[in-house]
Amino acid sequence: MPDTAGRDSANHGDFRLSITQALGDQLADALDDLSPAPLTESNLSELEDRPGVYQLYRNGEFVYVGKADKSLPTRIQKHLRKVSGRQGISLSEMTFTCLYVAEDFSALAPEKLLIKNYKERGEIPWNNNGFGNNDPGKRRDETVVKENHFDALFPIDLGRMIPRIKPGTTTIAKLLAHVSKEAPYTFRYEKKKVGSAYKGTIQVPETDLTVDQLFALIARSLPEEWQIAVLPGRAILYPDNGRTYPSAWRYYRGGQVLDVEPEIGEAGEIPEEPDVVDDAD
């Protein structure tokens, strides 16, 4: 009888087929075959309301990949709006490509396949800097923003003009709702337990105003305990006059507009919130 002790088995082994790797490679190849188009309202209007994956470019550099579970134009429109309200960047610099995918394909998390593929090449820097994150909510207003965070690189633009609300006398509540709807970034304000704070009236001039001008107008019309704080990626209004926020760079307190030096954290990878999940498609 042959002595097989100590010998390696020759009649079995392992076979590994990475289907997900193959899918990621095929998706990346299909997107690479497309020609980027300018990120404009007109180009987005030509897209179908279907799920898919997309890529964003800035000045020809590939910066972000994401997915839309329901509607590509709706999802990409959010990015157009975000970029349009920032300092130091212009929509004229932005282009995009996209692919429609079957609805059941989203279960395979195609954007994660692409992210893995491109990170290995050192691409998609905006997938690591908070670009796709939504408003983190009040509990994180105290966060110190890292220096490589999208919001720190491209703070909100208070010089953005807001479409004119009907001139004449209006209530503070109506003006707050108007600014919140029209500003191309989050303007979050206290909506509960406001008492009579928002019942006061404001005289709206017969000219278009910037966000900065509207914030100053609103702050002057509110009780003294209220303040508007401008953080890198959003503005907030609460009855906390005197409270400071680490990353804030401007406050509107009564008739005062105060510019301050924000705290900035050291560069590092930014934890991604559900940036590729359609929260309102």
Rank of each mutant, 00 (worst) to 15 (best):
I202H: 01
A235R: 04
T143C: 06
N133Y: 08
I236M: 07
E61Y: 06
I202E: 00
K191V: 07
N117C: 02
R58F: 10
A183V: 13
Y118E: 09
P51L: 01
T95A: 15
L258W: 03
I115F: 06
G168S: 08
E61H: 13
D25I: 08
L153H: 03
L72T: 13
P125Y: 01
P38H: 12
F131N: 00
D8A: 13
M94C: 09
D151F: 00
K181W: 07
I162C: 06
I162V: 15
L72A: 03
E272C: 07
S92C: 03
D208Y: 07
S106Y: 09
L72I: 15
I228E: 04
Q77W: 05
L175P: 01
E61R: 14
V204W: 06
V276F: 11
E261Y: 05
S42C: 03
L27Y: 14
A10V: 14
D240Q: 12
Y118K: 12
R160A: 12
E269I: 00
P38Y: 12
R121C: 02
E206Q: 12
G137K: 11
D151I: 03
E206P: 01
R81C: 02
D281R: 03
I236V: 15
Q55D: 02
G200N: 13
V257G: 04
P167Q: 08
H178T: 04
A22Q: 13
F150N: 05
K67D: 05
I124L: 15
Y64K: 05
A267F: 08
E41S: 11
L34D: 03
G255L: 02
S196M: 07
P239E: 06
F131G: 00
P136D: 08
D8E: 12
E266C: 05
I162E: 00
E93S: 14
P73C: 09
R220M: 10
N11G: 03
R16N: 09
K70D: 04
D281A: 15
K119V: 02
N43D: 09
T207S: 12
E272M: 10
